[in-house]
């Protein structure tokens, strides 16, 4: 049963995205009073592509920032900043992305940039936290052996610390991407497009069929990405840990 969920969801998402008319009868049945059913302004596929672009850009940016900060805060020279970095990123996550967006638009204008800012601020924390956890919980004897055999600090980081922390960091990145896919619907508020467009339009025009399309498509997208990244994480994991 559980093995079927993935492929079924995948197929359903593909069908919804690539066969524009397929939703029409379903929507007509679910929302008989909507008047208009399939969102007319753009295909779900192009909306999803834009949505993906926004959320993956934000996810990648959050990953780079989170990992960099995490590494810096666990080096001898950066350790003093650890509490500051932790506080700052927790604070960033408590700011509602919609509020950040509203505050950023006057400075950055409408479009991609304010959305990116809001999403990145909102999703750095999981990457940073997991990077810190991954790097702080490495077995001390392994690190001592690495230093004791003559690895430089950079070699210890690249050859031992990061590979060992990778599974934990990967989980953080996945969390951040999934958060982004869900939150990127606010992009429509700044005119950046994405799957938020049918939701916003549906709310304004009082059309639940449009809201439903946007919400369902972004949920499916999040589920698919989650599954994909999980599979990627498994492959990244060292073979010894995979087997056990």
């Amino acid at each position: 049963m559980k093995r079927l969920i993935g492929p079924v969801l995948g197929l359903a998402s593909m069908a919804v995205l690539f066969i524009p008319g397929i939703l029409d009868p379903v929507l007509r049945f679910l929302f008989p009073g909507a008047g208009e059913w399939v969102f007319p302004r753009a295909s779900l596929l192009s909306l999803a592509a834009m949505h993906l672009l926004i959320s993956l850009t934000a996810g990648a940016t959050a990953a780079v920032i989170g990992i960099t900060l995490g590494i810096a805060a666990t080096r001898p020279a950066g350790r003093a900043f650890l509490p500051l970095i932790r506080d700052a990123s927790s604070l960033a996550q408590t700011l509602p992305p919609a509020a950040v967006l509203a505050l950023a638009i006057p400075f950055l204008g409408f479009g991609f940039e304010p959305v990116l800012l809001a999403l990145v601020l909102y999703s750095v924390l999981p990457v940073l936290n997991n990077t810190l956890t991954g790097l702080e919980t490495l077995p001390e004897p392994v690190l001592e052996a690495a230093r004791g055999m003559g690895m430089s600090r950079l070699q210890v980081l690249m050859r031992v610390e990061l590979p060992l922390a990778l599974p934990v960091i990967g989980t953080g990145i996945r969390t951040s991407v999934v958060i982004n896919v869900g939150t990127a619907t606010i992009g429509a508020l700044a005119g950046a497009g994405g799957l938020g467009s049918p939701i916003v339009a549906g709310l304004i025009r009082d059309n639940p069929a449009w809201v439903f399309q946007g919400a369902m498509a972004s949920a499916l997208l999040a589920l698919m990405l989650n599954a994909l990244l999980k599979a990627a994480e498994k492959r990244l994991q060292p073979a010894n840990m995979r087997e056990v």
């Binding site: 077995p139 004897p141 392994v142 690190l143 001592e144 052996a145 690495a146 055999m149 060992l164 010894n240």
Partner: peptide, 12 residues
């Protein structure tokens, strides 16, 4: 250098 807890690299 050999230590009691060995410290083998678990990912290698």
């Amino acid at each position: 250098y050999v230590i009691q807890q060995v410290g083998l690299f678990p990912h290698m």
